[in-house]
Amino acid sequence: MRRLTTALVSLSLLATGCASIDQGGGSRLELISKRGQLHCGVSGKIPGFSFLLGNGRYEGLDVDICRAMAAAFVGDATKVQYRPLTAPERFTALKTGEIDLLSRNTTFTLSRDAAGGNGLTFAPVVFHDGQGLMVKRSTGIKGLQGLKASNICVGSGTTTEQNLNDAFQERKLSYTPIKYQDLNQVVAGYLQGRCLAMTSDRSQLAAARSGFPDPEQHIILDVVLSKEPLAPASVGGDQRLGDAIRWVVFALFAAEEFGITQENVDSKLEQAKSNPQMSSLRRFLGVDAGLGQKLGLADDFVVKVIRATGNYGEIYNRHLGPNSSVPIPRGLNRSYRQGGLLIAPPFN
């Protein structure tokens, strides 16, 4: 009897021991290429960023970031498994390893980045956004003063609640937050007249408005309550994965700087191959080997990425450009050469 107990106890200790050994080891980057698929966390509900189409496929700027990563890591942009996540779920999904990459309108903040906070690793900002407020045009409201002592519909699990509070407290105005779980409910509450205004990132307001029956009857106020630099994130403490993600995003920026598009990438590649003096282009496209390898990727990862998604400007225009269904002026999201904030460090 006692022997049996001892055996079982040691067995259980062994089992716990094994579990901890499994956790250690190398970078997630190897796991992704071994698996042959990238697990990407998206929202799935924001037109222009990530939205589930009628044919069952996801589309948007955030989705294209996932596709660019899959092209670089696995060599095939279609090898992505999308996981639609709500705002409160997203960090847990990263932490538990359910997803490799979070590409879901996530604001880059100190608490989320730092090891003592959520401990994530952020990639470069892919969309510079800011929190705004939307009201019905018929109310005639122009600024925060007009929203004094009124109800404001807000979504849960985001920095928006805190920003809203800060903005009203600074101006010594009172308000009542009506907090819902996700944006669809915020929109419904606002349209049903429960709130005078709804608040969210301006990009999301524009996206939501595109689905209204009367989009022109709603205005986004000029006031911007916050900086919302939205960036993809991966789990902290994994430098190789973090570096690889960072430089794939930079490659999208740099390709726009170089004037390399989905259409001309192959001719640019030929050009680089036949002209030994175009050294920066040769390094960027992996004709001169070495850069990709340092990241643990194929040397021609940039070519694969651009073939799959095009450069950043092309991605932006496809989903948020003037001819898209969710037009948002490019503003700060232009290359530094056009007066925007996007800049890629040298590919040296």
Binding site: L4, T5, L8, V9, L11, S12, A15, T16, A19, S20, Q23, K95, T96, A115, G116, G119, V235, G236, G237
Partner: peptide, 28 residues
């Protein structure tokens, strides 16, 4: 009964251990 109890304890142990390992890994 002891067997079942130990099996349950083992499962619980694995879960708690996983949590502890993950928390240490992410420095939290």
């Amino acid at each position: 009964q002891v067997g079942v109890a130990l099996a349950l304890l083992t499962i619980l142990g694995v879960l708690i251990n996983n949590l502890a390992v993950n928390l240490i890994r992410t420095d939290m």
